[in-house]
Each structure stands twice: as C-alpha cells, then as structure tokens.
Nucleic acid binder design. Structure first.
Lengths: 216, 216
DNA sequence: GTTCCAACAGACCAGTTGGTCTGTCTAGTT
DNA sequence: AACTAGACAGACCAACTGGTCTGTTGGAAC
C-alpha cells in the first residue's frame, strides 16, 4: 500500500480530531496521543504541523471553532426579515447540531471559554474574538430589524445580542449540567419570552425602555 | 514548635485549598501536590483523609459548594417580600462574591459543571443536586411572590427559576470569557428586563402568558 | 507513666505525557 | 535519473502525577 501524502489534509485531520477530543475531554483533558490515535498518525506528523499542544489548541479556535460558529450564524441571520424569528430558529438549529449522543457536551466554544479563559491569554483573546464576532452578527441583525420595524427602537442592540448569547450559552450549560433535555425545554420557552420583549409593538414603536414591558 | 493536631480542621483546610485550586485551574488542572503546598501538609495527611483525588473532588461539591450556594441563596430569598427585587439583589451580591482579582474565574459551581458533568457521573449527580437545590429555592420564592401578589399568576415558577439560574450563569460565563466587567453590566440590564416580565401587573394579575409582556 | 491508635511525615514508585531527535520515504524539480 | 525539501515514522526521554508504604508522633484513655 502506498501511503498518500497530503500536508493540508493531514493538518485538517489533526485539527478535526483535536476538536473532537477537546469537545469530549476539555483542552487540559485532551491527550496528544489520543489525537494521534484517532487519526492513525504519529508524533512525527503532529510536531511537524504544530510546534506544541498549545499551538494546536489555538489553531482549533482560529480554524475550526471560529468558522463553525461564524458560518452558521452569519447564514442563519442573513435574511432581512424578522431577526427575532431567526434567533428562535437558530436556537433549535444549534441544539440539533450539538448532537444526541448519550452524553450532552454543550457548546464547544463555551466549554473552552469556561475552562481556559482565565488560564491562558492566548486562549482568552481567541475566545473573546469568536464570541464578539457572534454577538456582532446578532446585533447587526437586530439593527436591521429596527430598520424594518420588527424590533423595537428602544432596544440596545448590542446589549440585547450580548445577553442573548449569554443566556443561550447558560441554557445549554445548565442542560449539560443536568444531562436532561427537559431542562433545555424549560429554559427555551423563557428565552422566547425575553426575545419577544424586543419586538416592536404595533401601536407604539418608540416606547421608552423602562415601561416597554409594562402597562402605562 | 509543637505541631497541633486537629483532624477536622486539617480536613477542612484540605477542602478549602482544593476548592481554591479547582476554582483557578479546574478539577483536571488541580494538582494534589499544589493543594498540599497551599496547606503545608504532606501526602500522608491527604490520603489519610481522602482515598483519592476523585473523592476530594466529590467532597468539595458536597461539603463546600453545596453549602456555599445554598447558604447564600436560602438567606437571600428568605424574606417574604418581593422575590424579584431579591433576585436582583442576589445578582449583585454573587458577583461581588466572585471577587475582583485580576482574573475573573466565574462561578465555581458552573465551572465544575461545564468541565466534569459529561465526564464523571459522580460529579454530574452532585452538580445536578446542587443546581436543583438552588433552582428550588428560587422557584419557592417566586411561588410565595405569586401568593403575595408581586409575581404574575401565569408565570411557571419552576421554568422561570430554571431560566434565571441558566441566564445568570450564562452572563457570568460570558463575562469570564471576555474578562471585561462591562460585558456583565450589559447582560445584567437585560436580565432585569426578563425579571420584570415576571411581575404581576397592577390592573390584571391573571393575564394569559402570551400577552403579558405585550399591549392588548 | 504506659498504652494505643488516629494523625500525620516523607521517601518512593509506576504510569503517563508533552516533547525531541534521528532517520526514512514521498512528491515534485531539474 | 538524480536531487532536494517537505512530510512523516517511531524510538526515546525527562518531568510530572496520583498513589503507596513504612515510619514517627501527638494526645486521649486507663
């Protein structure tokens, strides 16, 4: 058998395997040997493509996670219709993405964030960058919603987008903690309640924030 | 110098040191030797009190975290006044508790949850138990609020309490990821928006859920 | 004071882990 | 065909890590 050599594909295989291992065991729990075992490659190949385990971790964020999130959310929030409906749709789409294995492992980005953000500045910067991009996409969509009249004028798009991402990750995280699907179902309904808060009302599109959710 | 022996205190010191180490490095990143370094104790003392590193991890949840959370939240939600105001107050109280070190490490319970829940059933059960107790305290307070007229009748107390905990942990977690205080400030205001959603309105205490936050 | 056991000290060990290093092979280039 | 440089194999290593084991000591009971 002639072993075919393809540097780019080999690197991609290592990245993919590392992503999977990190998703299951965390970065600190990920073992270089296990990544190699998954790919069938050896130490020589690994340290040819990556100078260290840390560099692999960084690359997983930059080249896998950043794309994984960005691609989906940019596409999901692209249409210029109702951004709130789009967000609701994205919630389900992402949960579906996170799989139905016996063990629910949550969001790979948030996992890495909670584990590594305070420990390693390189991780923290990359994670922050990824979250910011995600939040930016949502905020832009909300602003477009304000222009087309689906989102209330008084809404702080940046703050609302930030909270949406935080709350969504919180719901996923609590579901991971309980390992029970109904935890997420309960959270999801309440998250919808918040999202509807952002809607423009038919009769008064420019309510002041402090009374928008309360009768005068 | 006569070394004073006190088994209970020694065990407590180990637990406290382990809690701190886990809080900073995670459970997998926590080193038994570092816990010993913190306390000045030796291997003999450690393995006299705990059969394994895993047993220490379990004990940290059962004997430190469970108390740490329960004590504060039971006390914070105790008074029979306005549970929503109490929740708002607790948010600030907890954030203050999480300290102002240069590195913001988030919530110790959630940290452990995100790291260990899918990896170890013993951890998962204990974490789930702790979250359930916390959510239960909040849900009970909301129900008392429904009785005294501060919380709307249509609110699903269990679901709302679950989401509150999830969203709060999400806000703390995103703040940990960004390492910036203003991330939390933005989230916090939006979390308040959700909380006010739960309030009973003066003129219609039994609005149907679907229109409670919207004008008729 | 003697006894006795829990409460530790601390040297030691085996398995693991990230990383190194030398050598080999493949795929283009000339 | 000869040459070269990148792509990879795989043996090897030093440091670390959880855990063991034997020995020592403090203090309560008698």
């Amino acid at each position: 058998m002639t072993t075919v050599r393809n540097a780019d594909e080999t690197r991609a295989r290592l990245l993919r395997a590392a992503f999977d291992e990190i998703y299951e065991h965390g970065y600190q729990g990920m073992r270089v040997d296990d990544v190699l075992g998954r790919t069938g490659l050896k130490k020589g190949a690994f340290y040819h493509h990556f100078p260290s385990k840390q560099a692999l971790g960084y690359a997983v964020i930059d080249e896998v996670l950043y794309g994984f999130m960005g691609e989906r959310w940019i596409r999901g929030m692209a249409e210029d219709g109702d951004p709130i409906a789009a967000l609701e749709s994205m919630i389900d789409q992402m949960m579906e993405q996170y799989g139905d294995d016996k063990k629910f492992c949550g969001c790979p980005l948030n996992n890495l964030a909670q584990e590594m953000a305070p420990l390693d500045e390189g991780f923290q910067e990359r994670i922050e960058r990824t979250f910011s991009a995600w939040i930016g996409v949502v905020a832009d969509a909300l602003r477009r919603g304000q222009e087309n009249g689906t989102v209330a004028e008084h809404v702080d798009a940046d703050a609302a987008a930030t909270f949406f991402v935080a709350a969504f990750e919180g719901c996923v995280g609590l579901t991971k903690a309980s390992q029970r699907r109904d935890t997420f179902d309960a959270c999801r309904r309440q998250l919808s309640v918040y999202l509807q808060t952002l809607r423009a009302t038919a009769d008064a599109a420019d309510d002041p924030p402090s009374t928008a959710w309360r009768r005068p």
